[in-house]
Nucleic acid binder design. Structure first.
Lengths: 226, 226
DNA sequence: GAGATTAGTGTCAGTCGCTGACAGTTGACA
DNA sequence: TGTCAACTGTCAGCGACTGACACTAATCTC
């Protein structure tokens, strides 16, 4: 009842539409308040006042103050999973994950815009990275995500997760780098989607060399922010 | 005033000793309650009742309920940083990190025992991994740690963190694998230090192969739990 | 050793996130 | 149209946490 699975399904009844409107209003009001005056500085009362519903209603739509923040993130992640499932078996696990993220980012734009302005979502992401308690929640979600991805990779390669460390290890390394780029992008001034994309690609390219240990030569692509 | 820097410094005055005793008592009582009846199920009131101090006092010693849980972890981490600084420059960054963890684990035992029974600390760690809110906090701390380690590695290799992705990338991959082993160990029945050590070594060994992409052969060492 | 100083503590009241219980309202459907 | 179920509001309460203020006791000063 609090999940966001209205995957392009325009609601049928009046009741459904009303619910959806309330939820969207709460979501937008919350993100607006969070990004302008800060997450911790915003109380649930302020959010419900803006939408003119009771606090109790807020907690019926969202599991908590935190859950609002990650509503959009949820969509992006499930899209990534979808893309990953569709990657051809010829790609290495690492390649597959890499392309799945980039494809997901390419195609998720409109779906986000239908819910909130993309620009608001970008600011939300930067807020997550700069708010300790949200960063914590983000990381916990990331752990759950890794577990899911590792399962997919193991399945893809017909391996037993319990016996073969490689799926988990590969996923951990991949997600680790993804988190680093996310953090750096969050800190940077340029909050554009393009900068995130190039930053991500650059960093992923460095994984192999970084582990090899021959750090004498200069890194491959070094034009980025921070 | 709430930090735990009594690094083998036996407190001088009566006041200092009293403080230390109160803090230790709170720490032990809290961990005991947490590990027996669960973190969320334990209230701060229960903890302070066990030690017979006021709630206000608890919050003067620890920033929050959460902070108690990670008090010992703090010691282990600062020990790791110490060990990492001492690794010879001839080792690759990855090697250095790997050995630093293992050395830290070897030498931290007594320091922990001085504070709480090591066995209690082990159970605490497993509790962290199995309690969502604590896992979140653990991950946030991990992020801060990664940043610090990346700084050390960059310094060690005379690189500019802002220009060269490799320190952050290598650290992200390393810490990612460390987290995976921590999770698996937390879930396993065998909560011994030895099992954690061998699990960690096995998984770290798989990082290179896992990224290479030639997953046809069977993994190197596969004897582990889960 | 007595008094002044100050760190440490307890008490109290209040905020904020969140939940259960119960009652009122409003779409849905026969 | 009336019944049913879903949705919402109100209220009361819990638990984590904080600020203010008074009190106790270790330390310092003379």
């Amino acid at each position: 009842m609090t999940d966001g699975r209205q995957v392009a399904g325009l609601p049928t009844g009046l009741r459904e539409r009303k619910k959806r409107r309330t939820r969207d209003a709460l979501l937008r009001a919350a993100l607006d308040l969070f990004t302008t005056q800060g997450y911790e500085e915003t109380t649930v009362d302020e959010i419900v006042d803006a939408v003119e519903v009771s606090q109790r209603t807020f907690f019926r739509y969202f599991a908590g103050k935190e859950a609002v923040v990650f509503a959009v993130q949820d969509m992006v992640e499930s899209r990534f999973i979808l893309e990953l499932r569709q990657r051809p078996a010829t790609e290495t696990p690492f390649e597959a994950m890499r392309r799945a993220v980039l494809c997901a980012w390419n195609s998720i734009g409109e779906a986000i815009e239908a819910l909130v302005p993309v620009e608001l979502h970008m600011r939300t992401y930067q807020m997550i990275e700069s708010t300790p308690s949200l960063l914590a929640a983000h990381m916990r979600r990331s752990v759950a995500m890794e577990e899911q991805i590792a399962g997919l990779i193991a399945e893809r390669e017909s391996l037993d997760l319990a016996r073969d460390p490689r799926p988990r290890v590969a996923v951990a390394a991949f997600c680790g780098v993804m988190r680093v780029t996310g953090q750096l992008w969050g800190r940077s001034c340029d909050g554009s989607m393009d900068s995130l994309r190039t930053l991500t690609e650059t960093y992923l390219d460095q994984l192999g060399p970084a582990l090899a240990g021959d750090w004498r030569g200069r890194p491959a692509g070094t034009a980025h922010l921070n």
